[in-house]
């Protein structure tokens, strides 16, 4: 038992590594802050394309693209981008590789969420908007998209929480986010406590969001 505490709940180690982990947490947070809006916007664009464009070929192409990236494990995508890019002769810094891989992966999930949201907005809305003289994109921007977002807010939040969890994958290419910081600390102090501390920090960050998401979902069901 003492062994367990010494190895995993070692308060002294926690205190020593906490500043280092905090820096890692900061990286996790701003990495998420970059990927979430980019992914969401890209996803929205894809969804709008699917629901608004008439051409079947274009729609199927976009759906194919979305399904392709939904089928692609994010870690594999990251490794491929990170290690493969140099072979194309382009130098890619770590952060850009991570962001590209994450946005490619995540935009497809956001696209699915937005697609459901857009399809859930009654056709009459667009018709009403157009009948008052609004142009297509205005109707989308001011009438349809806001309603779509409101409809699928729980799923958007859920997906964003997934992005935060996704950042741990970047630890594999040594981006100094929280998990990487913890593993580096573990190697330094020869003690796995930093990993547990990192897990606790993820819980503190994400558990309240998950609970809030649960409440959002319940409100919607009623």
């Amino acid at each position: 038992m003492e062994n367990l505490i010494h190895n995993f709940f070692n308060v002294q180690v926690y205190a020593d590594v906490f500043p280092h982990l905090l820096r890692g947490l900061w990286t996790t947070v701003w990495l998420s802050a970059i990927v979430i809006p980019l992914g969401a916007l890209a996803g929205l664009g894809l969804a709008v394309t699917i629901t608004q464009v008439q051409s079947r070929a274009v729609r199927w192409a976009v759906i194919g693209y979305i399904d392709f990236f939904r089928a692609f494990p994010p870690l594999v995508l990251l490794i491929l981008v990170y290690f493969g890019w140099p072979f194309l002769g382009v130098e890619l810094d770590k952060l850009t590789a991570v962001v590209i891989a994450f946005v490619l992966n995540n935009a497809s999930y956001y696209a699915e969420v937005f697609r459901a949201g857009l399809e859930g907005v009654a056709k009459g809305q667009m018709e009403a908007a157009r009948s008052t003289g609004l142009v297509r994109w205005q109707a989308l921007l001011y009438i349809v998209i806001p309603q779509a977002v409101r409809n699928v807010l729980p799923d958007l939040v859920g997906n964003s929480i997934e992005v935060v969890k996704l950042t741990t994958i970047a630890s594999v290419v040594a981006l100094p986010e929280l998990l990487r910081a913890a593993r580096d600390a573990q190697a330094l102090v020869y003690n796995p406590s930093p990993i547990v501390l990192a897990a606790i920090m993820y819980l503190v960050l994400l558990w309240p969001l998950t609970r809030w998401l649960g409440r959002l979902e319940h409100k919607r069901i009623r």
Binding site: I161, K165, T168, Q186, A198
Partner: peptide, 23 residues
């Protein structure tokens, strides 16, 4: 359910990877 949905899968994996041998 809350804890396991709030933790990134990689973190769960690493915690168990280092934790299980200890117990």
């Amino acid at each position: 359910a809350d804890i396991l949905r709030s933790l990134p899968p990689l973190v769960i994996l690493i915690v168990l990877y280092f934790g299980l041998p200890e117990i």
